[in-house]
Computed example of a mutant assay.
Amino acid sequence: MKQNIEETLKECISLPSQNPPGHVNEVISWLENWAQGFGASIEVQKVEPFKSNILITLEFGSGPTLLFNTHMDVNNPEGQSWDSDPFIAKVKNNKIYGLGSCDAKGSLVCMMFAMQKLALNPNALAGKVILTAVMDEEAGGHGSFHLVKQNIKADGAVVGEPTNLNIAVAHKGTYMKKIRLKGVPAHSASPENGVNAIINTAYFILKIQELNKKLSEYKHPFLGSANANVTVINGGTRQNTIPGFCEIIFDRRLIPGETHEKADLELQKMMEELKAEVDNFVIESIETIVSTIPSETDINEKIVETACYSKKSLSSSNYEPTGFRAGCDMSKLVNYANIPTVIIGPGSLEQAHSPNEFVEIDQLYGAVSLYENIARGFLS
C-alpha cells in the first residue's frame, strides 16, 4: 500500500522505461506489488520481449465498466540537456522534476492511488474499474492496439496524458514520414557535375510550409487547425562535396475528419509538383515513422458528462471540455474498440518530451481526486 504521492512518483520515475528501447518490466513488477496490496486482480499481457501490458481490475458486482488507460514507457532523454539525472526525481517549488513526471508516470501513479482509494472504500459502487498500463505508447501505441485486438470492452474510458487536469474530448492524429531525397555527389568546386539533395530538400520544405498555411484556414472547435512541419533534417557527407542525399522527418498532424489517405494525397501532390518544377528532383524512399488516427468523443456521452460534473464539483465552477493537440491512445479505444473516451491528466503538454520535465504536486492530488470522483460517478 502506498501512502505518499510525491515519494511514490519519485519511485516510479527511477524505474527505467525510456523508449527506445521501451522495456517496462521493472514498472510492471512495481505495479504488481502495489496492486496486490489493495486486493486487485492482475493480468500481464505479453506483447513483445521485455514489453508487456498490465491490467489491474477492481470488481464491485453488476454494473458498467470504466477503463483507466495510460502508458509506462516514457520519452528517451538522449540528446537532451537536463540540469540533473532525469531518473532521480527532484522536488523544487512544489514541482516534481524527472523523466516521465507528466508524460505519463504522473497519470499512472494518480490512477493507481484512485484505484487504491476505491478498493478501500467500495461503498455504493456497482461495476468494474480496469487500469490498463500499456507499453509502447511513445512508439505509436502498440500496447493499446494489442488491448483492442484482445477484445477489451468498456462503457467509458479515461486516458491519462498531461492536460493540466482539463477534460479533453478530441485529439490530433499523427502522420509522420522519413523522406529521403536522392542527389548526385560531386566536388563542390564543380557543382554542375552533381545534384544537390539539400537544395532540392529546401524546395520541398517550402512546399510543406505552403501546405501548413492552407491547413491553418480551417479550425476544429477543440483542437484548432491541422498542421504540417519538418522536425528533423540530415544530409551531406563532407564540407567540400555536393550532397548526394538529404533526409527529413515530415510531421503532419491530423484533426478529426481527416484521414491518412488524405495526407497521402497531399504528399503525392507536393512530390508531383516538385518533379515538374525542380530539375532532377528524386525521392529515394519514404518510411512511416508513426501513424495514429485522430479521434473525438461526443460531449453527450456519459463519460464526458461524468468527468465534467466531477471537475465542476471539485472546482466549484462551470466546466467545458477541451481538446488535446498531440496524439495518444484514445485513438485506439475510440476508433477500434468503440469506447467513449476522455483524456485527463496532471501536468502540461509543454513539459512533455522536454528536458527538466516536471509536474506540479498540487495537480497530482487534484488528479487522484478527479479520477476517483469520475469512477464513483460512473459506477454509482
Rank of each mutant, 00 (worst) to 15 (best):
Leu55Asp: 01
Pro49Val: 10
Asp298Leu: 13
Gly345Phe: 05
Ser313Glu: 15
Asn300Asp: 15
Cys110Pro: 04
Asp264Val: 12
Gly141Asn: 10
Glu137Pro: 00
Asn19Met: 14
Trp30Gln: 07
Thr174Trp: 00
Tyr218Lys: 13
Asn338Tyr: 11
Gly173Val: 02
Lys95Asn: 12
Val368Pro: 03
Asp103Ile: 10
Glu287Asn: 12
Val334Tyr: 02
Glu217Phe: 02
His187Tyr: 14
Ala202Gln: 09
Met176Val: 06
Asn335Thr: 15
Pro20Tyr: 11
Ser62Phe: 01
Asn196Tyr: 04
Leu333Thr: 13
Lys214Tyr: 01
Ser188Pro: 04
Cys308Ser: 12
Glu138Asn: 10
Asp136Leu: 11
Ile289Ala: 05
Asn193Glu: 15
Thr292Arg: 06
Ala197Gln: 10
Asn69Met: 01
Pro256Val: 11
Arg252Asp: 08
Ser14Val: 08
Ile339Phe: 05
Asp155Ile: 07
Val282Met: 09
Val278Lys: 02
Ile96Gly: 01
Ser29Arg: 13
Asn280His: 14
Phe281Glu: 02
Tyr309Ile: 10
Leu181Phe: 15
Tyr319Ser: 15
Gln36Ile: 15
Trp30Ile: 08
Asn75Leu: 01
Gln239Phe: 10
Ala276Trp: 00
Asn25Gly: 07
Gly143Asp: 11
Ser285Gly: 05
Met111Leu: 11
Ala202Phe: 07
Glu138Arg: 08
Asp329Tyr: 09
Gly98His: 06
Ile208Pro: 02
Gly345His: 07
Asn193Gly: 08
Ser190Gly: 01
Lys153Asn: 13
Phe324Ala: 10
Thr292Cys: 09
Gly224Glu: 01
Glu138Lys: 09
Phe378Arg: 01
Ile199Asn: 10
Gly347Ser: 14
Ser295Val: 07
Leu31Trp: 01
